Simulated scan of single mutants.
Amino acid sequence: MSDHITLVGNIVGDPEARTTRGGDSIAAFRLAVSERRFDRERNQWVDGHTSYYAVSVFGELGKNALASVRKGERVVVTGRLRLREWENETKRGVSADVTAEAIGHDLRWGVTRFQRTPRGDTARAEVTDQAAASAEQWASPAASDESATPGAVNTEEVSDPVLPETADATPF
């Protein structure tokens, strides 16, 4: 089965670089998608079930993902879902695999800066180094320092629109 799906969740571990038998590069990571809702009776956020997805990212998108996203970051992934049945000596199960067609940071919880990837391997190495240096700041917006990264945003000046019934609660 292969269906189109959009997921919003947190990256469980740093993306890994892998290679196909044909020599093509792949980025692979796991994505945790949790159900969260506001319980008006208890006046608090409650956790629901968490689903885990194995995400594979091919080609240039995969190379850019390796340079851009890290463990703990909240991302939006769009791609093709494939449910795969598996079995080993002790148990059986179903795995949800996603082949990503697009990835981006969830801007509800932080800021990011787009940088077009120059063509050529030498330019890519430079962009990768720059992205790796600023990736930690994206994951922790409160620790950002405007002088450390060009284009950084002081998060204290950014106001977050909040619904009236959730003014004192945050889902994460």
Rank of each mutant, 00 (worst) to 15 (best):
F29W: 03
V57P: 04
V77C: 15
G48R: 01
L31Y: 01
G62W: 04
A32D: 02
T50S: 03
E87Q: 12
A54M: 06
Q44S: 09
E89D: 09
D39M: 05
S56P: 11
F38S: 03
G59P: 13
D39T: 06
F58A: 15
L66Q: 05
V76P: 05
S56E: 08
N43Q: 14
R84K: 15
K63W: 08
S25T: 15
Y53C: 01
S56C: 11
E41L: 10
V33Y: 05
G72T: 01
E35I: 09
E85D: 14
Y53A: 00
Q44H: 07
E73I: 04
W45F: 01
K71L: 13
Q44W: 05
V57E: 00
G79W: 11
L83Q: 12
K71Q: 15
R82F: 11
N43D: 14
V57Y: 07
E89L: 08
R74V: 02
W86M: 07
Y53F: 15
E35H: 13
L61D: 10
Y52T: 02
D24S: 14
R84N: 12
A32P: 01
K63V: 12
I26S: 05
D24I: 09
G59E: 15
S34P: 08
R30Q: 08
R37F: 07
L83I: 10
D39S: 06
E41C: 02
E89T: 01
E89K: 00
R36A: 02
G48D: 07
I26A: 01
Y53V: 05
A54W: 07
